[in-house]
Design a binder for these strands. Structure first.
Lengths: 180, 180
DNA sequence: TCAGTACGCTACTGTATCGTAGCACATCAA
DNA sequence: TTGATGTGCTACGATACAGTAGCGTACTGA
């Protein structure tokens, strides 16, 4: 099963959802087509799992970090997760969530939001603790940070590392920080 | 021909490139399939034109504007262009450039960069004129602004208007502006 | 009137793809 | 040994789609 998913992920990364056909995955993984249908009811469910496999996981920051450290922690995790395979090469396809998989309820429409949830949490905490104005529009701030990360990841020339993550947080905070 | 493209755009917006089949466009537009092949050599070329039709056009700012006004001008244009149909509903599909169309050379791989070119130009001018540091990494700044715009447009709840555009520029400049 | 141009229609070929049926084989535990 | 489970293989049927052939029709300008 891992071999199947690995092959599916590779096909997805290279050619998008269109390339993830049952026959192609079967051949690439060396697993018989019939066997695949014993693990997934549908091509759409396989595609949904493939999609999820490509999403990076952003952990919640440890409790002992202060709001700024917490924000840096999640943005670093997001940048690094989005910056490496399979997320990075698959990113365009991840943004265009496969409609088939959504319509067949194999994927919820907002799958990707789960990836960003820890970032939103860190922003909210920064607002509550007055690192940024308490009245901050959290969604707007999310668009600001996540958009920066995604655009960077979409540019193949861009290095995705802690330096970039900290830079993004610095620019974010400098633009919004409230003086003590 | 306009009717064909209009139908193709609608299908693209609703269902992505996969929905833009020759038969579907033919039926939706009321134009015979054979007629379509008299205007486009290929399904890929039709898809490429459909794609371009969805891209917003961001004009260069008038020469008489100062760097800050110029930046506001292009960001407003980008926000408004991305915020309305067909660009906004098609945006996920625009980011995941149809690989078929690219491989068949009907679309260049960097189509979308042309849309952002005026933004890059305005940023560069802002740096040259010391509105932001002369050493500013222009590509980084592009990712910052364009990413913010795109993430906002991807969120259906977000209002895309001049207020948002100015807010984006404000946050950008506050984080980077050099004191006189 | 006549040639050129553009369009429509039906029917067709060829291919890719999903999904299933039916049968054989191997491994492992009771 | 035997039954359960998991896998493989070949061969299908059904559908969707790209692209073409061949023929007829309507308009337009000389």
């Amino acid at each position: 099963m891992d071999a199947i998913l690995a092959a599916a992920v590779q096909l997805f990364v290279q050619g998008g959802p269109r390339a993830v056909t049952v026959d192609a995955v079967s051949e690439a993984s060396g697993v018989a087509k019939t066997t695949m249908y014993r693990h997934w009811t549908d091509r759409n469910h396989l595609l949904a799992d493939t999609y999820r496999q490509c999403l990076p996981v952003v952990p919640e920051p440890p409790r002992e970090l202060d709001p700024e450290q917490g924000l840096r922690f999640v943005v670093r995790a997001l940048v690094n997760g989005m910056g490496k395979a399979p997320a990075r090469p698959a990113l365009p396809h991840l943004i265009a969530t496969p409609l088939d998989a959504v319509e067949s309820r194999a994927l919820p429409p907002d799958v990707m939001d789960q990836t960003f949830a820890p970032v939103v949490g860190a922003i909210r905490r920064a607002a509550v603790d007055r690192l940024i104005p308490e009245t901050t529009d959290v969604l707007e701030a999310k668009h600001q940070i996540v958009g920066f990360v995604i655009m960077s990841a979409l540019d193949p020339a861009c290095e995705m590392n802690d330096v970039l993550a900290d830079r993004i947080v610095d620019l974010f905070l400098t633009g919004r920080r409230v003086p003590d």
